[in-house]
């Protein structure tokens, strides 16, 4: 089985379940870059953020009690600099910003990163990541 590129901590999944219930919807993430609240994973109801050819899908994850799969996206050009790192989405106390859904909960999603092991990298380095154009076609 291929290693995944992104996963969620239990704390993050608890928060996601709460948000999914509150909004009565599935969820998606888009990893932001740059500026005040940047480099943070932004959480939206599924489909709120329109992805396209300039985005890549890093993973689709199932979380108990949340409808559908949770897609995790990033801009393709940003991925070029991120592709050697594995992402773990955590949640910490704080105040999210942008239009990310968790802000009012007093919690903030946070991307923690680690380098892939040599073994993981061997399996992943030539593995294509689909763009929004392909996924949404």
């Amino acid at each position: 089985m291929k290693p995944n590129r992104v996963e969620f901590t239990e704390t993050a999944m608890d928060l996601m379940r709460k948000l999914s219930k509150r909004h009565g919807a599935g969820l998606m993430f888009h990893q932001s870059g740059g500026c005040c609240d940047g480099s943070a994973p932004m959480c939206y109801t599924a489909g709120e953020f329109r992805t396209g050819g300039s985005d890549v899908l890093l993973g689709e994850l199932e979380v108990d009690e949340i409808p559908g799969k949770i897609q995790f996206w990033m801009s393709a050009e940003q991925f070029e600099y991120w592709k050697h790192t594995h992402l773990t989405i955590d949640a910490v106390p704080g105040r999210g910003s942008g239009f990310s859904l968790e802000a009012p909960e007093g919690m903030r999603f946070l991307t923690r990163s680690r380098m892939y092991t040599d073994d993981e990298w061997l399996q992943l380095k030539d593995e294509p990541v689909p763009t929004g154009l392909e996924v949404n076609a």
């Binding site: 740059g34 940047g38 932004m42 942008g98 990310s100």
Partner: peptide, 25 residues
């Protein structure tokens, strides 16, 4: 943001929106 910024930015009643922040937003 999601409760206040979003309804402002998506309102049909503004003629322009100016934003400073990060790329995804």
């Amino acid at each position: 943001g999601v409760e206040t910024g979003k309804p402002l930015a998506s309102s049909r009643r503004i003629a322009k929106i100016a934003f400073t922040g990060e790329t995804t937003t």
